[in-house]
């Protein structure tokens, strides 16, 4: 028997706990998707017109940025499992940079809307009718909530990166690293549905 007692650790439980949290996130966004589809059903013409004003190129670029960032964080878990700390750190930093790039794109996208006085509660938007108010209300709320998740995910990943750098997470103990990956993939997953619903279906 070793003299230093080992702390009990259950990686499997930690992962299942993370998944349960992700389920609440899925239902949160799921509820918003229901609101979106009902309003779209009742204001088909206005939603159709309003969706035309969103930039498909920016949306597509952001989709690809998120897909790549998901790949890099997934690969960083493989790197940690293979004891390749340096590669894991590089991949995590790449993920952070890509996440920031996504937010920069969002900034320009939202900035363009704000310049045209399109935002929730705007009088210019109110003149365009109920359908447009609903479309842009949902657009700003849902992409905004998604962007908030990106920011939280970036902080989470930054903390993980630091812990790996300090060898607090390694090939023996990386459940937290995997959980940060799960969170980031969920953010990607939500965007996979937000993108066609707001940008593509016109």
């Amino acid at each position: 028997m070793s003299t230093t007692p080992e702390l009990h650790r259950d990686d499997q439980a930690s992962k299942i706990g993370m998944w349960f949290f992700l389920f609440t996130e899925m239902l949160l966004f799921g509820g918003l998707f229901i609101v979106y589809s009902i309003y779209r059903f009742r204001n088909a013409e206005a939603f159709h017109q309003a969706a035309h004003e969103l930039s498909i190129p920016i949306g597509t670029i952001n989709t690809i940025i998120l897909l790549i960032s998901s790949t890099t964080i997934a690969m960083s878990v493989t790197a940690i499992q293979k004891k390749d700390k340096k590669l894991a750190l590089i991949l995590l930093c790449t993920t952070i940079v890509l996440g920031l790039a996504f937010l920069v794109n969002k900034y320009f996208e939202w900035g363009a809307h704000l310049k045209e006085h399109i935002y929730p509660g705007s009088s210019v938007l109110a003149l365009r009718g109920q359908g447009d108010v609903l479309f842009y209300g949902l657009y700003f709320f849902m992409t905004g909530l998604h962007a908030l998740h990106i920011i939280i995910g970036l902080i989470f990943i930054a903390v993980i990166t630091r812990m790996i750098y300090k060898d607090k997470l390694n090939s023996e103990s990386y459940a937290l690293h995997e959980n940060s990956g799960l969170y980031w993939h969920l953010v990607d997953l939500i965007w996979i549905f937000l993108f066609p619903l707001f940008y593509l279906i016109t």
Binding site: S70, T71, A74, E178, G181, L182, H185, L186, D188, L189, I192, F193, F195, P196
Partner: peptide, 15 residues
């Protein structure tokens, strides 16, 4: 297509 994409993210990326 979104459903197919998410199944790949869930099965491979999310292990």
């Amino acid at each position: 297509i979104a459903a197919v994409k998410s199944s790949f993210v869930l099965r491979i990326f999310m292990h």
